[in-house]
Amino acid sequence: MAVAAVAILATAVPASAHDSLVHSTPEADERLAAAPESITLTYSGDLLVLGESTQGAVVLVIDQDGRDWATGEVTVTGNTVTAAVEPGMPDAGYQVRWQVVSEDGHPISGIVPFTIGDAEPMTATQAPTDADAPAYTPDASDQAAENTDETDSGMRVLLVGGVGAAVAAVAFVLYRILRRPRTVPAAVDDVDAAEER
């Protein structure tokens, strides 16, 4: 019974873990001498895509005025996301704002700030002012959102593990009942045989 419960918990834990960003080009808070030609994001696991499309993967490269410098389609290959950027990005602070679908089906998002040249970095509290820019409203803290997801995942693991342990216990009891030796009926048959003699 304990082995069954451990097996269920062992299979439940990996299924509930969200992927996370492990590397980016440019890196967070990096200061570049020249504008990048593309943005590359690498995650801890393969990302979920629908068919041949990259629906669910969004990459924006936003400046202080709210302009999005990302251009073309976002490319998703395994655990890597690539987005081209328009040429001619001026020296300024930027934020790569990304959202992808984790391997477990949950959307995850984050911000990677970087700076070109000697410009001031763009702070997290600066909001785009361009009305034509893609809408993006971050939560109070992307990290807080990730922590909430992890807490929910932990509760799911405990729930699945508890249900699995209960099922294993019931199966074990049924097995013992069905495999129990039938000693009482045998004793009754012996008594009947003695009376006939």
Rank of each mutant, 00 (worst) to 15 (best):
P138H: 05
V188F: 14
Q64F: 03
V74I: 09
F172Y: 11
H106V: 01
A135F: 01
A166T: 15
V160C: 07
V6W: 10
A194D: 14
A33R: 03
S153Y: 06
T115D: 04
S38Q: 09
A10Y: 15
G56Q: 10
D132I: 02
I8F: 02
V112P: 05
D63R: 06
V85G: 08
P36Y: 12
A166K: 08
E52M: 04
A135S: 14
T183K: 11
F114W: 12
E37Q: 09
A135K: 15
D29V: 07
R97D: 03
L41A: 05
G56L: 06
T125K: 04
A17N: 08
P128L: 00
V167N: 01
G51M: 09
D68G: 08
S44I: 14
M1C: 06
H23N: 11
L47Y: 11
V81I: 10
D19F: 01
V76L: 05
A131C: 10
V173P: 02
T148Q: 15
D139R: 10
V81K: 09
V59W: 03
T25E: 09
E146M: 13
A35M: 08
A5H: 11
V85A: 07
D68T: 12
L48G: 00
P14D: 08
M122N: 06
F114N: 01
V173K: 02
L178W: 13
L60A: 10
Q99Y: 07
T151G: 02
A33P: 00
A186E: 08
Y136A: 03
G56R: 09
I62G: 02
G117M: 12
A33M: 02
S141P: 14
E150C: 07
I177N: 09
P181S: 08
L32T: 00
G164A: 06
Q55W: 07
D149Q: 08
H18R: 01
A187S: 15
A194R: 11
G88F: 00
A2P: 10
R97A: 00
I39E: 01
R179W: 06
D19W: 00
Y94F: 15
R31K: 12
A83H: 05
V13I: 15
D46T: 09
D19N: 10
R179Q: 10
L60G: 04
T77E: 07
V61Y: 07
L158D: 13
M122K: 13
E146Q: 15
V96R: 01
E37L: 13
N147F: 02
G45W: 04
R197T: 12
A2M: 10
V100N: 03
L158N: 06
A194K: 04
V100E: 02
D152A: 12
H106T: 11
E73F: 09
A57C: 04
T42W: 01
N79F: 01
D132L: 00
A166P: 05
A166Y: 09
A7S: 15
I62V: 15
D149V: 00
V112C: 01
T148K: 14
E30G: 05
I39P: 01
A15M: 08
T11G: 06
D132M: 05
V100M: 06
R67I: 12
E30R: 07
S44Q: 04
A135I: 14
M155S: 06
V160S: 03
E30L: 08
Y175R: 10
W69G: 14
G154P: 07
V167D: 01
A187P: 09
V61T: 14
